[in-house]
């Protein structure tokens, strides 16, 4: 018999637990969960540090350059650090920590890495334009019943289904 600890949780139970985590974020901190925002904060900090003059002249970096607080000390940066820790803890207890390039047996690791980078680039751009990613704009937006959240989820998943056919060889 397979080791029970290695099985994934019932998705509906996981969903309810995730719902409580979202509620906790709003209740304790007044914030929604997020992912991409943390990357933006770190990059803004880096650019302001490395090129202070450039950041003063650019509309995008100006607010970060003029802020008294270090933009890296934000709620989302700490939350994403937490995700990293939480992932390690859960993975360790479930016996799922393993260094690997995970991919369909029909493609090579190299192909998988190339498309992972490309996907990441698109998510980086899209999340900045769309004011957040699947968790920030989508999930947290739906939790507060914002039109923006539903629109974002519809656009992300709609587009995923639209383009899925072209990339089917990567997955099936």
């Amino acid at each position: 018999m397979e080791d029970k600890s290695k099985k994934y949780m019932n998705p509906y139970l996981a969903g309810v637990l995730l719902g409580f985590v979202i509620m906790a974020a709003f209740f304790f901190s007044g914030e929604g969960l997020g992912g991409s925002g943390a990357f933006k904060d770190v990059i803004k900090t880096a650019v302001v540090k490395v090129a202070p003059e450039y950041s003063q002249s650019s509309t995008y970096f100006k607010s970060a350059a003029e802020s008294e607080h270090s933009p890296i000390k934000t709620w989302l940066v700490f939350e994403v650090l937490g995700v990293l820790i939480g992932g390690v803890i859960s993975g360790a207890f479930a016996g799922r920590l393993k260094l690997q390039v995970e991919h369909s047996p029909k493609i090579t690791s190299r192909t998988r890495i190339i498309f992972a980078v490309l996907g990441g680039i698109l998510f980086g751009i899209g999340s900045q334009l769309g004011r957040g990613c699947t968790s920030g704009a989508g999930l947290s937006g739906m939790a507060v019943m914002s039109v923006s959240g539903f629109l974002s989820v519809a656009a992300i998943f709609g587009s995923g289904y639209l383009f899925a056919w072209f990339f089917r060889k990567l997955w099936i």
Binding site: V80, A116, G119, I125, A155, I156, G160, L170, W171
Partner: peptide, 24 residues
């Protein structure tokens, strides 16, 4: 939101993750 979402959806089927899940 729509244009960004469409870009992200394309990124999702190419990369197989979204930012939060990729960190995990």
């Amino acid at each position: 939101t729509i244009v960004g979402g469409v870009i992200m959806g394309l990124g999702f089927v190419m990369g197989g993750f979204c930012p939060g899940t990729s960190v995990c």
